[in-house]
Design a protein around this nucleic acid. Structure first.
Length: 308
DNA sequence: ATCCAGGACTCAA
DNA sequence: TTGAGTCATGGA
């Protein structure tokens, strides 16, 4: 039987502090709580909820990393009752912190880069914090289309607090992003009342429906063989454009070469780093990113982080 | 009022 | 493929 805590080894370079620094960028984050040196988050049991045992169970976990050698994960509330479920938790956390990535090539690639060299040194060990859950990643991206980040966080929180599950621990409530099944049958007006636009509401419901039916899944997208095919599959869903698809490639499918080129945050970061008096054009971004081929997602992530 | 924000869609060259 | 116009919504 699994115990109440476990460790996950990390490869170097890895800096938990830098990861937490990124994760505290918004005080409006609703899906995890960063304390000094730890993160607390409510996770969903890996097992599918169709096994007739009621709602899928949740685990409240606390993650620390005292020495940057291994993550220490403690179950604060709820606990896997099988090795299979424990593996699900481990898999989620590895995805979340991108633990399976070898960052050495990245560090070497940009060590002397005029633009990224400084950022790579400053953020040494920062991992591309992911969104392992496909539905959460899609909704977060859709909600964040063409709105400022604080508002996007509010929308995400409303979705979580309206359709998600939560537990209370030591007087604080911890939310889990809703499963697609919770939104597959929602009507557009209900989501619009959360201040999502009609188009976003429709897209959030449509993706929920496709995921509930099994037509859309993370495994299915990865099973298409290459990320371009996954992007194509995503883009043909109404409300999901190239930015959203690349965002999902980057943060959920874990494609290191994903490149959300239309991202205004990326554009502003480049503008700032290069002291430009305007935002770069798509062509200029492509040219700038050319030397970082294969690592566009990390370049984007580090540039994002440079804004905070 | 006006502009911006981690866009998408349509339609035209 | 690229570009202009349109839509949509809150926040500064």
């Amino acid at each position: 039987m699994p115990g109440s805590s476990f460790d996950l080894a990390v490869s170097q370079p890895f800096s938990f502090a830098r990861c937490l620094e990124y994760m505290t960028r918004s005080p409006l984050e609703s899906l995890y709580e960063v304390r000094s040196g730890s993160v607390i988050r409510l996770l969903r049991a890996a097992r599918e909820p169709d096994s007739d045992c009621g709602a899928p169970r949740s685990y409240l976990v606390d993650i620390t990393c005292p020495d940057d050698q291994a993550l220490h994960v403690r179950f604060l509330q709820g606990k896997p009752d099988s090795d299979e479920e424990l593996e699900g938790v481990k898999r989620y956390i590895r995805e979340w912190f991108d633990l399976d990535r070898d960052l050495e090539p990245w560090q070497q690639l940009v060590a002397d880069d005029p633009v990224l060299g400084k950022l790579a040194a400053e953020f040494y060990g920062l991992r591309l914090i992911g969104i392992p859950d496909l539905y959460e990643a899609l909704c977060w991206a859709i909600a964040g289309q063409q709105v400022n980040l604080p508002f996007a966080y509010k929308l995400k929180a409303r979705l979580a607090e309206t359709y998600g599950k939560s537990v209370i621990w030591e007087g604080r409530r911890y939310w889990r992003f809703p499963d697609p099944s919770a939104l597959a049958g929602a009507d557009i007006a209900a989501l619009q009342s959360l201040q999502l636009t009609r188009a976003k509401s429709a897209a959030i419901i449509e993706t929920a429906s496709r995921m509930t039916s099994g037509e859309l899944s993370r495994a299915g997208l990865l099973g298409l063989g290459d990320f371009a095919s996954a992007e194509q599959a995503l883009v043909h869903i109404r409300g999901i454009g190239p930015w959203t698809a690349n965002y999902v490639r980057m943060r959920c499918l874990r494609d290191p070469s994903a490149f959300p080129i239309g991202d205004v945050g990326l554009q502003n970061a480049v503008r700032s780093q290069l002291s430009m008096d305007r935002k770069p054009t798509p062509a200029e971004l492509r040219e700038l990113f050319a030397p970082w081929a294969g690592w566009e997602a990390y370049a984007t992530f580090y540039l994002w982080h440079s804004l905070y």
